[in-house]
Design a protein around this nucleic acid. Structure first.
Lengths: 262, 262
DNA sequence: GAGTGGTCTAGACCACCCC
DNA sequence: GGGTGGTCTAGACCACTCT
């Protein structure tokens, strides 16, 4: 117990000796870190409720308002979800709302439609230099790659290659992917969460335009050389650790990549 | 004065009769709206400081904490900027930090580099159906379009077409664009702000892959048919009013569109 | 030192959910 | 009715900037 906080916020204790030092850490920031640690440690699992603000306040020996501000920050990052009158929950890709949180491919016209997956194969191999760099692995480290096609309104639109470190995702196979409840429908992240306990909280993407090669063209049923979006993604879990590398080749005839700039 | 607020927050007053009605508007939300109105009315101009939290609190007859929460929201939307010890300022595209806030084209490797503009021409014409829809105009309304090339490290990378309603941007010409202090360097939005008082606060983009046509290919010095990113953008001012339509054709050999998903 | 934003507290009360 | 998040207040104190 007695998990109280560094209330003596004076000049001492550089904490981790980085840049000259902020030499000042707001209390709510320390609380936020403690909450994140509990999340990483698995104290509260995705979908579960965390303790009430009052309880956390007394546990950390701060006021409710301070806990509140810490939770606000985590909620803004989509790591926690507040539900008035019920409690605060650990976000999960399993819920319908958050199933496709990272999906930016949308129809050019009409209502949103969500894709279904067709898995082509699952292979084990060695990380290329590019992938090793992105996933923070040694070059040549064992990785597992998944190939799939995304169907929108029953038509093939995206050819995906998904690469994860084999050590973190053991026993990954076609059967396991298709056997899982949310195989065809439901995002991969939902599967990663339930099957391996990895929750993705953030991702970075780089988009380029490329010409379809023979295989891709055939898979997406277009002419070789057709311009496609090439979307490279790195996804991160708690603690900003990269876990997944992904390359999507996307036909943008009837769909496009939507983005809001603020 | 006496600009006080609807403190009687009871069930009455549907305000604008939309969905069944939230029938509850937090005080800070009303304050936020009042602040936005002052912004729209030009009471405080881009770059200027707004009154202190204390002063606003007494003006609106609420506590400092409530004003604070309203300002927090506007700061999160990049509409206001807080500076500890100095005051709260109206955000502007003029400042170096915010000059390229909406620019997502970044080098594949190495440090960020910012583009310079070469203006090709400025023409007046009528809004196409697509543009009229995007800018919320009548089809055929008078519009002014700017063509420019963006040079990164002195090499042509983007061919831009920028369309704005002529009524809102009168007397727009090549000379005016190039004569302005920030003609070649500096974003267009900086120019729009100083020359016409329009500040862009938000934008929506749709990205597709296309093949370069003859003119574009020549301009970007690549082969006709080269795959390019086609980035369509609509930019909005205060009150979410669309003001600018833009289409950028982007060579993604050494540059790519970067995006963070959270 | 005066003024501004930033943190923290303690307590009252409201809106929502579920029993 | 009791619990949870959400709003609002009033006041104390801290950190930063400028003069």
């Amino acid at each position: 117990m007695a998990a109280s906080v560094d209330t003596s916020n004076s000049s001492e204790s550089p904490a981790s000796a980085l840049s000259p030092g902020p030499s000042f850490r707001p209390l709510y920031d320390q609380i936020k870190i403690l909450l994140t640690q509990s999340l990483v440690a698995g104290e509260w699992k995705p979908g579960e409720a965390i303790p009430s603000e009052m309880e956390l306040a007394s546990r950390f020996r701060v006021s409710q308002g301070t806990v509140r501000k810490a939770i606000d920050a985590l909620a803004a990052e989509n790591i926690l979800i507040r539900r008035q009158g019920k409690g605060t929950y650990v976000a999960t890709h399993t819920e319908p709302n958050h199933q496709y949180r990272f999906l930016r491919i949308t129809p050019n016209v009409g209502e949103m439609v969500y894709p279904t997956s067709i898995f082509l194969d699952v292979k084990r191999g060695k990380a290329s230099a590019e992938i090793a760099r992105g996933l923070d692995l040694k070059a040549g480290a064992p990785v597992t790659s998944i190939h799939r096609v995304l169907l929108f309104s029953a038509k093939p639109v995206v050819l995906d290659e998904v690469v994860v470190p084999s050590t973190k995702f053991p026993l990954l196979s076609l059967e396991k992917l298709e056997g899982s409840g949310d195989g065809k429908k439901g995002s991969l992240y939902s599967f990663f969460e339930t099957a391996y306990g990895f929750r993705m909280i953030r991702a970075e993407e780089r988009i380029r335009a490329v010409a379809a090669d023979a295989f891709t063209a055939k898979t997406l049923r277009v002419a070789k050389g057709t311009p496609l979006l090439c979307v490279d993604r790195i996804a991160f879990t708690y603690g900003d650790k990269p876990v997944e590398w992904r390359r999507g080749l996307c036909l943008t005839e009837n769909y496009s990549y939507y983005n809001e700039l603020a």
